[in-house]
Design a protein around this nucleic acid. Structure first.
Length: 451
DNA sequence: CCTAATGTTGACAGC
DNA sequence: CGCTGTCAACATTAG
């Protein structure tokens, strides 16, 4: 971004501190006229922006918000729907079909249209100790509570920035057939190098690639297609609208990320309703709750004994990204499918490990997959930890990549290694229960009990 | 070449 | 954006 700005005669300035403190220091020391920013809907951002707004009022500064992180303004959607938040995807689509067309992207700025404020760096040096270099946290600074480094090196093959993001977008869209016939359920959660979807989610989450840009480049390709084109909810455009749908719901429904005081969430008596930190401190957990805690860590660390689930959790940990349907698999397993653990625990793990972790989409999908959402009731649609992956990857190549200890298992046992005869396990130097864990839960039995 | 057994596929209901 | 069992239709193959 800095390179792009420099080529236009400007530059990027990064300051470290809380926005409230930094802005207060700045506004106190200089009479700025305007503050422009993007509308941001998650609770953290709403509180932050409200405080900055108060500062602007105190220092008499004009403040303007622009819609940019979503295609539609959730408040406009609500107005169009008689003040009600649309609770189903179909309803949402019918509303946006009646909305005015999305306005075109602004053109890119030309050279010298973006001016740098004169002497801004001197001012910043005096007021907030700015030293002219970037002040972005680097990997070495990311440490855990005991002071140990969390990462030695970047974990994901993707690189940040708009330039890289647009490269990926245009490469994907250049395959017009793949783009226009995209159907989410037909893309494979077991695909790697390359993945079966665009992998643009981290770029959208961090605003590297604008959703509007994505939308207009995509519709340009779709309009050129003469033959049949896939439709929402499964089409690529449909995926962008899922994002809008969850953003709208997360903004209009309070406490969207939790079970309590969330009008869109059913109250279910899960295991592990308390935070993991509190549960770890509590030594008097009864047997059932203690077992659930053990199960939770086995799930998080990819040692449930189900290769399909474990491979997904290992890819998540190693790369910070898994395919959407893989997320369905592990989320169903943790909650209504097998372990019956509170979906908030899963949301927290995704928040920690996903590069694209996004307040609205994370909460919306956990509500959905755990069967908690009042607007989704197909609780009997259980993902099998054995057959779901097999459908996409019968040879188990995905499992072989992420769980090397299983890589030589014949394909007949790769999804269910506990079924391999013991002499085969010994020959492959991978005895189940020793070299790879036994199943922590018998899926068939749980499903039966659930009925 | 026919026949019967066996395998494959897709639609569908019920959970 | 589920799984399983059932059934019918059709394909394949052994004898």
């Amino acid at each position: 971004m800095d390179d792009s700005l420099k080529s236009l005669g400007s530059k990027l300035i990064v300051l470290r501190g809380t926005p409230q403190n930094i802005f207060e220091l700045l506004l106190k020391s200089y009479k700025f006229q305007n503050l422009f920013f993007e509308k941001d809907t998650e609770p953290y951002s709403q509180i932050r922006d409200l405080e900055i707004q108060k500062l602007c009022q105190i220092y008499d500064i004009n403040m303007e918000k622009f819609l940019g992180h979503t295609l539609y303004d959730p408040e406009e959607i609500q107005k169009q729907n008689k003040g009600i938040c649309p609770s189903s995807y179909g309803k949402f689509i019918s509303i946006i079909e009646k909305m005015p067309k999305i306005s075109e992207c602004e053109r890119d700025p030309k050279i010298n249209e973006l001016r740098t404020f004169p002497n801004i760096e001197n001012l910043l040096e005096k007021v907030v100790g700015y030293k002219g270099n970037y002040d972005i946290p680097i990997i070495d600074e990311l440490i855990d509570k005991e002071g140990h480094k969390i990462f030695e090196k970047p974990t994901h093959k993707l690189q940040g920035g708009e330039k890289k993001g647009l490269e990926i977008l245009f490469r994907y869209l250049s395959d017009k057939k793949k783009t226009s016939l995209f159907e989410k359920p037909k893309t494979s959660p077991a695909a790697f190098n390359p993945a079966s979807t665009t992998e643009l989610s981290p770029y959208l989450k961090f605003g590297c690639v604008s959703i509007k840009k994505f939308y207009f480049e995509l519709t340009k390709v779709l309009n050129e297609c003469k033959g049949k084109v896939s439709q929402p909810p499964v089409s690529l455009l449909g995926q962008l609208f899922w994002r809008e749908f969850f953003y709208t719901n997360s903004f209009l429904r309070k406490n969207f990320h939790q079970m309590k005081n969330n009008s869109s969430c059913k109250d279910i008596n899960w295991h592990l309703n308390d935070s993991i930190e509190n549960l770890n401190k509590n030594f008097s957990l009864d047997n059932e709750e203690n077992q659930a805690l053990q199960n939770f860590f086995a799930w998080k660390e990819g040692r449930t004994g189900y290769p399909w689930i474990d491979a997904l959790m290992i890819q998540l940990k190693q790369e910070g990204w898994i395919h959407h349907l893989g997320r369905h698999s592990v989320a169903c397993f943790l909650t209504r499918g097998d372990l019956y653990i509170n979906w908030e625990r899963g949301l927290e793990v995704f928040e920690e490990l996903l590069l694209d972790a996004d307040y609205a989409l994370n909460a919306g999908n956990w509500l959905w997959l755990s069967g908690s959402s009042v607007f989704f009731s197909a609780y009997f649609r259980i993902y099998s930890p054995v057959t779901f992956g097999k459908k996409y990857d019968p040879d188990g190549n995905y499992i072989r990549k992420y769980i090397p200890v299983l890589k030589d298992f014949p394909k007949s046992f790769i999804y269910e290694p506990w079924k391999a005869p013991i002499d085969i396990q010994k020959k492959l130097k991978c005895v189940i229960g020793i070299d790879y864990p036994n199943r922590i839960v018998i899926h068939e039995v749980f499903s039966l009990n659930f009925k």
